[in-house]
Nucleic acid binder design. Structure first.
Lengths: 226, 226
DNA sequence: AGCAGATGTTGACCGAAATCAACGGCCTTC
DNA sequence: GAAGGCCGTTGATTTCGGTCAACATCTGCT
């Protein structure tokens, strides 16, 4: 099943509320996609806009020689597949098993124009998206490897962390290379930096896909300093 | 005169047409701002959305220690000042003398909601913006210094280049540090890379603020390779 | 006109992160 | 359960671009 084009990074606000999307045209369909499958490719006709319900997707662009930049990880509440024209402008794949709500774009290509409320919500979502992307700009352009990794962990902690005693734990469903291509680093540097954070007692790594933050304030400090 | 929050990079399409914006509320006012002045700062109340008419602005974010990332250069036709909430999320300053059209946001804070057409246009503009930003992501995260500078020049060439004989010339109103902070490099690297391009016969530099491209196809090739 | 500060260029050197390489663990597949 | 491939970690080495520094040029100011 091949679907949409994603546009989100870490978005704290579920701007698109359930009832708003439910009111749009024929009720949107929910689909499941298993881990490691593409939803759509750059250049595909952009028929759908997707709302993440469960799981994580990644959106990316590839250069001619294979270099890859991950644009965003789409988490529940995020919207993927917005496009200003008829085509998707990045690839999108599932990172793990995913459940998503599918909105079909109408013929006129400005999606949802018959529903001004949903259009306004989408506009606010897009503006929010732009804001998130701007934060990511300064990360990619001006932060050190340690700052990048700490910022990434801090963002995930804020979004999906579960508090347990004095720790905040969360899963990292994506592999090291995905994180590397998101932060503009090599996967070796991701690994080394995580090891350093563990050695400094700031995080624990119970297994490869889970992080427990032992000192949240120090992590946040590293996200801005060093 | 202090005004808006900008959101654009290099945008080929003047999506916001004159009559659409003119139909919005009380007719928008045109203002002039001279070179080197701020339009607004991060955190300011986002009262206005601006349409660039003439000149160039830069939008930026600053880290605690002074590191700066330029998010976009706003050229005529671009929109600056979109925000998902009541505040601007970046600084904006004029690079040279600027003329711009000012749209006041209404009280409800979702700008222009009474004008569904303009909302749809803005949505398409925002989606286009997101697309441009995605292109910039792969530039910041994965391209070499030469690729970055060549991409920057190629984008400017396509947008504001004037064909003269076999050459395409254009002004670069911003200083080297601005370009550096846009591309995530140091100003010395910008200078060195421009010199290399000149030595290779790909560009001429008649003066510090003007570029003539002698071999456009080689420039475009460098933007993707090397 | 003359001065001061900003801007641009170039060289020397340094360092953070990439690259290259080796290896261990885990998962899939037959 | 053997084989092969991915993934993650760690070490050795390289390299690109940053930093520091010197100097030239330009601009604005009085």
């Amino acid at each position: 099943m091949y679907v949409t084009s994603p546009v989100s990074i870490f978005n704290n606000s579920n701007i698109i509320s359930t009832q708003v999307s439910a009111s749009n045209e024929s009720q949107p369909q929910i689909i499941n996609v298993s881990a490691g499958h593409p939803l759509f490719f750059e250049g595909d006709e952009a028929e759908f806009v997707y709302e993440m319900v469960e799981g994580v997707v990644r959106t990316s662009k590839i250069l001619f020689d294979g270099r890859r930049q991950i644009l965003s990880f789409g988490y529940p509440g995020d919207v993927v597949g917005l496009s200003h024209d008829r085509f998707y402008h990045c690839d999108c794949e599932t990172v793990c098993d995913v459940k998503l709500r599918v909105h079909r774009k109408n013929a006129s290509n400005t999606c949802f124009e018959r529903d001004p409320n949903f259009c306004n919500e989408l506009l606010r979502y897009a503006a929010c998206e732009v804001n998130n992307m701007q934060e990511h700009f300064i990360m990619l352009g001006r932060k050190s490897a340690m700052e990048k990794v700490a910022s990434f962990l801090a963002a995930l902690m804020g979004r999906v962390g579960e508090k347990k005693d004095s720790r905040t734990c969360f899963d990292i469903p994506m592999c090291r290379s995905d994180i590397a291509d998101f932060l503009g680093l090599s996967h070796e540097t991701i690994s080394r930096t995580l090891t350093r954070l563990r050695q400094n007692g700031i995080i624990d790594l119970p297994n490869k896909h889970r992080v427990c933050v032992r000192r949240p304030s120090e992590l946040k400090a590293l996200a801005e300093r060093e």
